[in-house]
Design a protein around this nucleic acid. Structure first.
Lengths: 179, 179
DNA sequence: AGGCTCATGTAAACGGTTACATGATTAC
DNA sequence: GTAATCATGTAACCGTTTACATGAGCCT
């Protein structure tokens, strides 16, 4: 149970259709929780069966009908219960570090190229996050409660990207020096 | 295909039994790739069917027999092919950030407590990583190729923990101030 | 007597990814 | 004409987690 919670959290803002949720997961929430549209539609059916959300079909001419989901009282309770249970530290899956673990036995030049790509990726991410930061969260003293939480997501993103950039720079130097 | 690669990488060092691999995944490799013993045993059977590894039963008196796995030529080829294919950036699953995303609608005090626990967790981790660093990687100029890769894993660990500590400190301040 | 370490496994359930499927409208 | 956007779904597969299972030896 995890994607369901992220969906419920998004529905706390306002009712949304599966499609809108998908869009949402491509931005904002998607930076710390990935989900594909197939996954979202399947989850919505399950959650509807469990009574956590309720879908209403909105007839549309010239477009496919939309099914807009509302969070129910039962869904609201699930959120509260979930928030009250301790969060596990994020489980790490760093494939690149597994490759580096084998550095003594594999081709170094390939890994240097990978590390350079990683460096560029994190630099792009940092620029993106900083742009969002200065557009929406320039003045920290006027944030609503809701904005405060989202600011913290962004803030961790920025700190993490900075750390990754430092690391990738060092790694390129170190691994590249012996190629 | 992912855990199988981590297992192969560990077998490059030397042959190991499922049990030994499990121990291994609790430390070193496990910092960037988690695996339970059930998962490892199942993977080993599959990999054995595919011919990537070969198990040999070692009879033991007064202890259960061990099945020690060697990497085969085919397994070695799988590693090389895997190293040559680009690595996806790690997929993020940060449950705590999803909770913070709902900060406008849920109990703040609970989240402050969570954040404090997080801070402590990352501080402990940092101490642990720094201890390993000064024990095994004190002098960077004398590292073997193999050690270099493992040093980089540790280095990213340290930088990440430092970033998380800064973040968690700020988060406790910010969220705690309005409770 | 109770719990830990060594050592291996099966089975069920759950979660996530990939492929396939449809069909209209709008923008270049 | 081609691609993107809007809008929803099914099916198969793979990977992961949780629960259950066994059994000897060692330490307190």
């Amino acid at each position: 149970m995890a994607l369901s919670h992220a969906i419920l959290v998004s529905l706390l803002d306002r009712p949304r259709s599966g499609y809108e949720l998908g869009k949402r997961f491509e931005k904002t929430l998607g930076f710390f929780w990935k989900a594909s549209h197939q996954q979202i539609y399947q989850q919505l059916h399950k959650m509807s069966d469990s009574g956590w959300v309720k879908g209403e079909t909105v007839e549309q001419s010239e477009r496919p009908n939309r099914i807009v989901y509302n969070i129910t009282k039962a869904g609201r309770d699930v959120v509260d219960e979930w928030v009250a249970t301790p969060t596990d530290p994020p489980s790490v899956k760093e494939e690149l570090l597994v490759k580096l673990y084998a550095l003594g036995d594999v081709d170094r030049a390939t890994l240097v190229a990978e590390l350079r790509r990683r460096l560029a990726f994190h630099q792009d991410r940092l620029v993106l996050y900083q742009a969002i930061m200065s557009e929406y969260y320039a003045d920290l003293s006027v944030l609503t409660d809701q904005q405060q939480g989202r600011y913290l997501g962004l803030r961790l993103g920025i700190l993490s990207e900075q750390a990754s950039i430092v690391w990738a720079g060092e790694a390129v130097e170190l691994v590249g020096a012996r190629v």
